[in-house]
Nucleic acid binder design. Structure first.
Length: 414
RNA sequence: GGACAGUUGGGUGAGUUGGCUGAAACCACAUCCCUGCUAAGGAUGCGUACGGGAAACUGUACCGAGGGUUCGAAUCCCUCACUGUCCGCCA
């Protein structure tokens, strides 16, 4: 949720920021007018209600003193319908404003480059040189059967398309990666969590998945529950509706969870292989930070994710997302893309975002400093997407005979 | 799944014969005083959100959520959610 007061008082500036995320001017005008009418309706209701409260109090005093209340009663009765109408107006205005403001994405930072799609993203740096192959490297799905790590067909049989089965060393490496990531994150100050994989609608609203992206979520029938699309949801919402003592900040958290996504808008994309699945494993980092410290923590999280890939000796690059490619809640995002020699391209394996106070506003996560409450900043990032790391290992560590070497750092985990 | 009990501010917890309670007391926290040492004592302040005001201050809403009764509800009624205890079931 954006700061509506700031939006209203700095309409020009705020609109320009949101233009980077391609929000329609008409929508912004509507938001502005809804805000104004809510204020208006509230003022009317509150003034009348104040009057009624005063007379009601007087009524009580009259009764106590045994005075005649006939006239006062008649007067008070007349408030009933007036107040009901005014209240209804205010309620409608509030609902309309709430509905629209929930759909407005976060302001991008000034440092975020302009651009409509990923072609305008800016490469920050490359880490590690891709390995030179003396044979033609295969894509991971070609390697899947030769090394026996992934069984796509049986995954589909058990569930449906975009599900797969890991077996043997594939399953073991997946598990090793999870342990390696969690330990690495923990050594860097992140506390480990194990979380509910279903969260209720209110939590999903807190982090911004609802109401706008319901189509991408798996919902549990007859329950107010959704399968989480990322551990960002439960981790961030651990502090939903809480006021944190500023001495506890920053709070650094990490968790491994499976993630569930319908991939509604991705029909036909990455249908082959394990890049885009309905269920995938991910180790996530979340930070709850003092506003002054979130940039610093952001850099630390980016570095942490990059270091994981470096430790696995996987070549990768860091990319600053442009406004058009930025997610709904993010003010700033750096993607980390790992080199896939079989595909001969870099593919996203981590995405680290600073949402500033956007999620904190929605989820009511505040900190108290010198008796005053303010919204915290929340950050999240993958460290890392486990399935995609497995793929990256397969493609980067493949041998000519179709077998896969095990990265040095993982050996102690197997 | 069945029965009973409960859900109040950062925490514990009063208040449920409707108005003087946005809410006692205690703890925690903040500032100050005293003292001087791995402590204690004293003073003051201290819920959240939105609106008005330069400010002092002030209006409205909120005592799990939603609805109802009433001039007026934390207090009465209804529905739902959650928590606790006992029973049943179960990894």
């Amino acid at each position: 949720m954006i700061d509506l007061k700031y939006f209203q008082n700095n309409f020009e500036e705020a609109s320009n920021k949101l233009a980077k995320k391609a929000v329609a001017t008409q929508t912004l005008e509507e938001l502005k007018s809804l805000f104004a009418s809510l204020k208006d309706d509230n003022a009317k209701y509150e003034a009348t209600k104040a009057e009624q409260n005063k007379l009601s109090k007087l009524f009580g005093e009259y009764k106590q003193k045994g005075l005649d209340t006939y006239e006062l009663k008649a007067q008070l009765d007349s408030f009933k319908t007036t107040l009901a109408t005014l209240q209804e107006n205010a309620r409608r205005s509030e609902e309309a404003l709430e509905a629209l403001s929930q759909m407005i994405p976060n302001f991008p930072d000034d440092s975020v480059p302009e651009g409509v799609d990923e072609n305008y993203n800016i490469e920050l740096r490359k880490v590690l040189e891709p390995r030179k192959f003396d044979f033609t490297p295969k894509e991971h799905w070609e390697l899947a059967s030769s090394c026996g790590w992934i069984d796509f067909e049986r995954g589909v049989k058990l569930a449906k398309s975009r599900f797969s089965v890991l077996r043997g060393d594939g399953a073991r490496v997946e598990r090793a990666l999870i342990n390696f990531f969690l330990n690495f994150n923990r050594k860097n100050g992140f506390e480990e969590f194990n979380l509910p994989l279903m969260n209720n609608a209110s939590m999903l609203r807190g982090t911004g998945q609802l109401p706008k992206f319901e189509d991408d979520l798996f919902r549990i029938e007859d329950e107010d529950l959704y399968l989480i699309p990322t551990a960002e949801v439960p981790l961030t919402n651990l502090y939903n509706d809480e006021i944190i003592n500023d001495k506890e900040l920053p709070i650094l958290m990490t968790a491994y969870t499976p993630c569930f996504r319908k991939e509604a808008g991705s029909a036909g994309r990455d249908t082959r292989g394990m890049i885009r699945q309905h269920q995938f494993d991910k180790v996530e980092m979340v930070a709850i930070s003092h506003p002054d410290k979130s940039d610093e923590i952001f850099e630390m999280m980016v570095q942490n994710a990059s270091d994981l890939l470096t430790a696995l000796e996987l070549p990768h690059r860091l990319v600053m997302l442009c406004g058009g490619d930025l997610g709904f809640s993010a003010a700033k995002t750096v993607d980390i893309e790992v080199w896939l020699p079989g595909q001969n391209q870099y593919r996203e394996i981590s995405s680290i975002s600073n949402t500033r106070d956007f999620q904190a506003r929605r989820a009511k996560i505040r900190y108290k400093q010198d008796g005053k409450n303010s919204f915290v900043h929340t950050l999240n990032g993958s460290a890392l997407a486990v399935g995609r790391t497995l793929i990256a290992i397969m493609e980067n560590y493949q041998q000519e005979d179709g077998t896969i070497k095990i990265p040095e750092v993982l050996k102690s985990y197997l």
